[in-house]
Write a protein that binds this DNA or RNA. Structure first.
Lengths: 111, 111
DNA sequence: TTATTAGTTTACAAAACTATAAACAATATT
DNA sequence: AATATTGTTTATAGTTTTGTAAACTAATAA
């Protein structure tokens, strides 16, 4: 018999897993991941690209870094961000395919 | 010039994309996707497997179906659920790898 | 028809998330 | 040293998400 009592399952992994997935659960953070999918960028460039208020952008970047999705590098006054691994962009891309497939299915229902 | 005014970007896709990713942003829904990754299951079996209150389970299943992640099939008194596409399980698996990689990195920092 | 079973919907309070504004800190420039 | 620039942190109000309980609906069995 395992350490876990019968029928009492350890859900820690599911909680950790969902915590990292929460990083994808916001349109601004999806946009940031999208922009950074193939290059590093500075905070200022991200601000320009997203049009988001700097305090808000900083908060979202903090979330992504804290979950290990982005890596931050500081150089003088500037901060640079990049994906910690291409896997994140891949997972993101697959979820976008699911979205597109669903939209296509809905359109078929209409026609 | 496009229909969008200069520098005013259309973020609709990012919003739709994040909306579907929100399905992954909960431990119970991650568990459901995990359980259904390779088989169809009835509501009752899912209840047994997850140990979640039936009203809550029904709510989470409703979220997953409404986002096109699960397909529901009814047969008499019973309801059966399965993934609409294997892609969701794939994306989920990749995010789990990101999680595991990050945990390993943290452990290296300690040792 | 009445009761039972299986699952859904609704109401609601607690917790988590979000965007804005303002204060702050760190580095670089004059 | 004083100022400007870049980015972070904090406070806060509004919104969304969540789990529980209770009421409800639909299909089957007695």
């Amino acid at each position: 018999m395992s350490k876990q009592a019968n029928k009492v399952k350890d859900k820690t992994l599911y909680t950790l897993h969902s915590n990292i997935c929460k990083a994808l659960a916001n349109p601004i953070r999806i946009e940031i991941i999208d922009i950074l999918s193939n290059k590093e960028m500075s905070f200022g460039e991200l601000q320009e690209a997203t049009g988001v208020l700097k305090s808000n952008l900083s908060q979202h970047l903090t979330v992504l870094v804290s979950k290990g999705i982005l890596i931050q590098r500081k150089e003088g006054l500037n901060a640079y961000y990049k994906l910690s691994t291409i896997k994140v962009a891949t997972a993101c891309q697959i979820m976008r395919e699911v979205l597109i497939d669903n939209i296509k299915k809905q359109q078929k229902l209409i026609n």
